[in-house]
Design a protein around this nucleic acid. Structure first.
Lengths: 174, 174
DNA sequence: TCAAAAAATGAATATTTTTGCATCGTCGTT
DNA sequence: AACGACGATGCAAAAATATTCATTTTTTGA
């Protein structure tokens, strides 16, 4: 199977472009160790294969709302805020999620998909864009997608349909 | 013992208190408005009668562990840490903005909760944070929350679950 | 597909923040 | 009283960070 011809590739590109990956790497690094300057972060990113400049880091940190906080040990540390701090705790620097999806559960002809914060809209629109027969439509909040499936369609059908372009999707409740 | 005869006391009042007062003033200022640079803070302090230099502010902010956080409005703001700002915290994790809820009605495995304008997201996230078994998830707009309950769960079950932390909750429709 | 628009980026620069050093006023000790 | 220690502070240099500008890359719309 040529994955570059598959919708998996399209999905991946849509959600995980270079910048997104770098942002995720930044999150992972600063949540796993004390980083006290952008220069230091720059070096750590390079070790992970991300080559960029201090200017871009400054913008990235602003985008991520990463705070610079006084710290007893090293003077200052960069810190994520509450909401984003536990997002990627199980991920190492070198492993990136190909999906922002956390879980999926059904209730009747509805499914509730939990995503990483902020991912719901993006993922929902990817789902919508495939125009799947099984899925009537979706509504997305910030980290939750409500998916309405067509009458007569089973939960397995929906999972199967989504699994075509959502890697590793699996329903918690069967 | 006459503490006014103690030179330690005099020393404390004359020197330490100046710093303490300034630190307090800094806390008050940055917790009541958005301050985006030390220079700006310097000016605000001067208006309050505290004359100092930017270098001292840098040290003060470090002492107070004041974080510099990216902000959508003004670029960057200085922010107190959780512990320091607890004064303003009116709601604990277990308290609930019950006054924000207007009504709750069911239809099948769905419930629509009407809230005061702007409250929906906050209330929905409080509900989510409790990770109730009965509730698959919620999606919030501005003043409406859609709540999806698990299959086999009754309306009463949902109300019971919510009533654990939502005082006086009651379903309009049974 | 192509052109226009928008977003991302690096280099250089401007701005902001931190810090080394010297000083001042005071205390505790001799 | 003299001396050394200490915390607070200002000044100025150094370091860190943010932003401007020009360019490239990506996305969007027709």
């Amino acid at each position: 199977m040529n994955i570059f011809a598959s919708s998996l590739y399209i999905y991946t590109v849509l959600l995980m472009n270079i910048k997104s990956k770098r942002l995720l790497a930044i999150k992972n690094i600063i949540s796993s160790q004390k980083v006290s300057s952008q220069e230091e972060l720059l070096f750590l990113l390079q070790k992970g294969g991300y080559v960029t400049t201090q200017a871009t880091l400054s913008r990235d940190l602003k985008f991520l709302k990463v705070a610079k906080v006084p710290d007893a040990q090293v003077g200052y540390v960069y810190a994520l805020h509450e909401a984003s701090s536990k997002v990627n705790e199980e991920l190492s620097v070198d492993e990136f999620p190909v999906s922002g999806i956390e879980s999926m559960e059904f209730s009747g002809n509805l499914a509730v998909i939990k995503t990483k914060p902020g991912f719901a809209n993006g993922i929902a629109s990817v789902i919508d864009s495939h125009g799947l027969y099984e899925i009537l439509g979706t509504i997305a909040g910030d980290d939750t997608i409500l998916l309405i499936s067509r009458e007569g369609v089973t939960k397995a059908d929906v999972v199967n349909a989504l699994s075509l372009f959502v890697p590793g999707i699996r329903s918690k409740v069967v």
